[in-house]
Design a protein around this nucleic acid. Structure first.
Length: 666
DNA sequence: GAGCACTGC
């Protein structure tokens, strides 16, 4: 059976451990084709994109923007930059920038392309730049980078003068920073007619991108268009779509039934199931084990269930990459991580529950929360496509065909469902004064822009004329943290002399999954001032432990050792001076988070001071188990069964009028 | 007494 001849996949993925979690279609293509025996040149010539090489180069002579539509594995990410290089676009020490939404993709593609170009290492002719890791030199001609990194470069060099060409890869994902880069590039192109922009996107978006970048608005003469679309055939096999006849009232049950059915009636081939979250995955896993072991035929049908979601430790995530086995069906239960971030080989059957959990921002309350919503058509098609990578496959959509037709065509871009204070701050730092008039590809609702401006004003980052302040606003824009965090760090340094402590707290709040045993951690480290100082207590205790003992110490204290290592990496703070941080640190927190102040009500809930929202203490907070303070500052709100405040710190009410008098009048 | 999709500087 041809679909199972790819046992070499695993070994090649092991060799390139970083690429096994990569979304880079092109890198994975080489693994899939099992063409290691072919020379690199032969491999390059065999790629679908090669047929369009001359066409691409010709279009770039006449058009300023090129939208490239290419499915999984057509070779666009690795090949197009090389064609440009070979055609002389990098002559004279110039460099092509290629952006990726994720770090692993940027690094693994760079490694692959360096190899194709005969380089012994990455960082010469081909390099990459991601946060904390810049592998480029002044001879680098092709540079892969995260789009966030390109944004940072634009703050230093707004016209991107060293790049003749910028390629935005995976633009259809519409991440926050991709959208920002796109909006800024459109402005740059007016000032730099020589700049060429290549946008790689999915079919559904291509027209939108093209209309956006096309500067020929007045003439119907198509030859005057400044943007062209180019489609590259994919390497995907056909996928049979199966819909439900009738809608289901409980898609979790239907998911289980469908998987059992596939397992007992369909030919060998692995199954990939899309669910919305960790809990759902666990539920389905348990029910599946019950159902499948009840079945007397299961002796002939060996199976293994592998969950994957980002919260899972990396070693467990790696289990989905075990090579396909004809005698043992792999059933992968996944969140959206399998739709964009990782690609699993050997999938023949996809089960799509039809829902997704996404971030949603309420402009009115200014908080974001996670909600389960129906997927978009684009997302459903992406999921289905995962069944056709190695051979033809089947996709079971757990909704009716009529329901599919009614789904949104696209997922709402992140910029339209996010808190925009960081975005606005960055645009201000790039000299964009009138944010409301900025030509976004998908403009956010004006309300959330105004809300972001208000917060930045309250934090002192912009002045009465909405101009970036100096030095506060300028410095905040340079810090890679959310504006309230940035302000807290700045005040800690300038007013309260506790920057080490505050940096440690920010680092602890930024790394997810630090505590695996909540109650143990609380017992060991909890302090009455609240969660922020508890986190500081954990951090300081961790630093005091000798390095060789840290791992065991973490385990004994309910902490995730790997997560703690990452805290240290991001926090170059070797100073172990011991000041009593109790009041100073809490005041610094207030200077960033004063808008998140709340007061105790008689029923045990809290009310925010400014907009009178009713909130509850989240049960994971140290506050509430120790006492019920009258005044608190919270870091975050999570909306589940109630609206909960997470990460709380006890404050004195007069600190509010002392630190944020412009925001609170007594 | 609840439970966090996914990224990035």
């Amino acid at each position: 059976m041809s679909s199972h001849n790819n046992n070499n996949n695993y070994s090649s993925q092991q060799q390139e451990s970083s690429s096994s979690l990569s979304s880079s279609e092109d890198v994975l293509l080489f693994n899939n084709l099992n063409q290691r025996s072919l020379s690199i040149t032969q491999q390059r010539l065999a790629l679908p994109v090669y047929q369009l090489r001359k066409h691409i180069l010709h279009l770039l002579e006449t058009k300023q923007t090129l939208v490239v539509v290419g499915h999984t594995g057509c070779g666009k990410t690795t090949q197009i930059p090389q064609y440009l290089y070979e055609a002389g676009w990098c002559d004279g020490g110039r460099c092509i920038a290629v952006t990726q939404p994720r770090r692993v993709a940027a690094t693994s593609v760079a490694v692959r392309v360096a190899e194709e170009m005969g380089e012994s290492t990455v960082g010469g002719k081909v390099g990459y730049t991601i946060r904390f890791d810049d592998q480029t030199t002044n001879t680098t001609a092709i540079k892969y980078m995260t789009d966030g990194m390109l944004l940072r470069e634009m703050m230093v060099d707004p016209l991107l003068s060293r790049y003749p060409v910028v390629m935005i890869d995976e633009a259809h994902e519409r991440s926050l920073s991709t959208d920002l880069v796109i909006g800024l590039l459109k402005k740059v192109m007016v000032r730099r007619p020589d700049l060429r922009v290549i946008v790689s996107s999915a079919t559904l978006d291509a027209e939108d991108f093209c209309n956006y970048f096309n500067l020929n608005k007045d003439s119907n003469d198509k030859t005057k268009d400044t943007c062209a679309i180019l489609s590259i055939e994919g390497r995907n096999y056909p996928v049979d779509l199966h819909y439900l006849e009738e809608p289901t009232a409980n898609y979790v049950d239907t998911t289980v039934k469908t998987i059992v059915d596939i397992h007992l009636t369909q030919t060998p081939g692995d199954v990939l199931v899309f669910l919305t979250g960790q809990d759902e995955i666990e539920t389905v896993r348990r029910q599946l084990i019950d159902r499948l072991s009840d079945d007397p035929t299961n002796q002939q049908h060996q199976y293994t269930i592998v969950p994957i979601y980002s919260g899972l430790p990396l070693e467990k995530q790696m289990k989905v990459f075990a090579p396909p086995n004809i005698h043992k069906r792999k059933i992968v239960l996944a969140t959206n991580i399998a739709e964009t971030s990782i690609t699993i080989d050997g999938i023949v059957y996809v089960v799509d529950c039809g829902f997704v959990k996404i971030k949603s921002y309420s402009g009115r309350s200014g908080t974001d929360s996670l909600v389960v919503v129906p997927t978009s058509q684009a997302s459903a098609n992406q999921r289905a496509g995962r069944a056709g990578r190695n051979r033809s496959g089947k996709c079971y959509r757990l909704y009716t065909e009529a329901a599919f037709a009614k789904l949104d065509v696209h997922t709402i871009p992140e910029i339209q469902r996010s808190n925009l204070s960081s975005v606005v701050l960055q645009l201000k730092a790039l000299g964009i004064d009138n944010i409301l008039a900025f030509d976004f590809l998908s403009p956010p609702v004006a309300d959330s822009l105004v809300r972001a401006l208000e917060l930045l004003y309250a934090l002192g980052a912009i002045d009465d004329y909405a101009k970036l302040t100096s030095p506060i606003g300028m410095t905040m824009a340079e810090l890679p943290t959310e504006p309230p965090f940035s302000k807290m760090i700045l005040s800690a340094a300038s007013d309260f002399g506790c920057s080490e402590e505050c940096l440690s707290i920010v680092a602890m709040l930024t790394i997810p999954g630090i505590q695996y045993n909540q109650s143990l951690v609380r017992k060991q480290f909890g302090v009455k001032e609240g969660d922020h100082l508890t986190l500081l207590n954990i951090y300081n205790s961790y630093v005091d432990i000798k390095q060789k003992d840290q791992s065991g110490w973490c385990h004994d204290n309910g902490l995730n050792a790997k997560a703690m290592t990452r805290v240290l990496q991001g926090n170059n703070n070797n100073d172990t001076k011991k000041v009593d941080p109790s009041v100073l640190v809490r005041k610094a927190i207030v200077s960033g988070f004063f808008s998140n102040a709340a007061r105790l009500l008689p029923d045990g809930s809290y009310q925010t001071i400014k907009d009178k929202r009713n909130l509850w203490i989240h049960p994971t907070s140290i506050i509430g188990t120790i006492n019920s303070p009258e005044w608190v500052i919270f870091h975050d709100v999570i909306i589940t069964t109630k609206e909960f405040m997470k990460e709380l710190t006890v404050i004195e009410p007069n600190w509010l009028s002392e630190i944020a008098p412009h925001y609170y009048s007594k």
